[in-house]
């Protein structure tokens, strides 16, 4: 029964993708892209990936849309119609689709328990997590402990991308643009209803973010999702009260400290393991009981991830929003 629903959602996904490419209004395209992300999150949930679905819904549908809209406000809203030369790409793309579909019949069927992907390390993770780390959410265990190096790398990619955006956008514009700051910075201050409801919701969004952060060992969640959710809450505050109020609440220096401090915290946990006589990012030595040591390490590095992601997304948002 669920497969019918999945096929319906996947078909909608393809239709939305076609609509994104066909429309010439970029604002419409960005909004359709948010719908695309939400459909993708639903599909992830059907495919048993609750953590990934939560991340896609918070990041793909929430933060990405806001950043795209910020960029649209600085560039153009309408795309020029293409004049010529669309048949060659179309032919190449169609042929490639047919080749991939032909090749897909050599793939394992969806949900095949004997597929090669399920034979290598995954059974070991599923079997030994209860013994070595003793937390229910295996995704968090693999993310933070077994593949800690990988996650450390990803956190530093987020860090580097944030620094890159700040480098590119903190240079003042060459031509002085027409000043519309007084109109722009007031946000939605004169709209009573969104403001009242927004003020009501922002604390609960933070609360939910913290729940996702600290419940990540037991249910879907963790630092990546929590950072994105808390960043969304602050972006909502910025949209309601104006850019200046949000920067007043969390100044840029604090944001930079969050971006650097979170990544540092992650690295320091690894170094602490080395000082205590283990390997880099080996949490077992953090406590006399290796299992509790592992849990301590996971909580610490998840906190580092959450702080970095939240700080980086907010810095990127402010960099785009301040530009005009």
């Amino acid at each position: 029964m669920i497969i019918v629903f999945a096929v319906f959602l996947l078909t909608l996904l393809v239709l939305t993708a076609v609509a994104v490419v066909r429309t010439e209004n970029l604002f419409v395209a960005v909004m359709l892209m948010a719908i695309f992300s939400l459909l993708m999150a639903t599909n992830f949930f059907i495919l048993d990936a609750a953590d990934v679905a939560l991340t896609e819904a918070a990041v793909g549908a929430g933060v990405t849309t806001v950043i795209f809209l910020g960029a649209l406000a600085l560039t153009a809203e309408q795309e020029k119609p293409i004049v010529s030369g669309r048949w060659l790409p179309l032919a190449v793309v169609s042929v490639t689709v047919l080749v991939i579909i032909y090749a897909s019949f050599d793939q394992p069927r969806l949900g095949d328990p004997g597929a090669p992907a399920h034979q290598h390390v995954a059974p070991w993770y599923l079997e030994k997590t209860a013994e070595f780390i003793d937390i229910p959410n295996i995704v968090t265990a693999v993310l933070a402990s077994y593949r800690g190096y990988d996650t450390l790398g990803e956190v530093f990619v987020v860090f580097a991308a944030c620094i890159g955006v700040l480098f590119l956008l903190s240079v003042p514009p060459v031509k002085p643009q027409k000043s519309k700051s007084s109109d722009n910075s007031s946000g939605l201050r004169h709209h009573l209803i969104p403001q009242v409801v927004g003020r009501l919701l922002v604390p609960f969004i933070f609360l939910f973010g913290l729940y996702v952060q600290f419940h990540g060992e037991y249910g879907p969640g963790g630092g990546f999702q929590a950072g994105a959710i808390i960043a969304t809450g602050i972006i909502l505050y910025a949209l309601l009260e104006g850019e200046a109020a949000a920067l007043n609440a969390i100044p840029k220096s604090v944001l930079m400290a969050m971006v650097c401090g979170g990544a540092m915290l992650y690295g320091m946990v690894g170094v602490a393991g080395m000082i205590l006589g283990g390997n880099f990012l080996d949490y077992s030595v953090l406590h006399s009981d290796p299992v509790i040591g592992q849990q301590m390490g996971i909580i610490l590095i998840e906190a580092g991830v959450g702080i970095t992601v939240c700080g980086a997304l907010l810095s990127i948002f402010h960099a785009f929003a301040e530009r005009d």
């Binding site: 990936a49 560039t75 295996i138």
Partner: peptide, 27 residues
């Protein structure tokens, strides 16, 4: 299988950061 989920979980957040970098260049 938790392993592909972990890879994609981190890739989504990295994806939005790199997209933001691309948008900054476009601006």
């Amino acid at each position: 299988n938790p392993l592909p989920q972990v890879l994609i979980l981190t890739a989504i957040v990295v994806g939005v950061s790199t997209t933001a970098l691309g948008l900054a260049i476009v601006v």
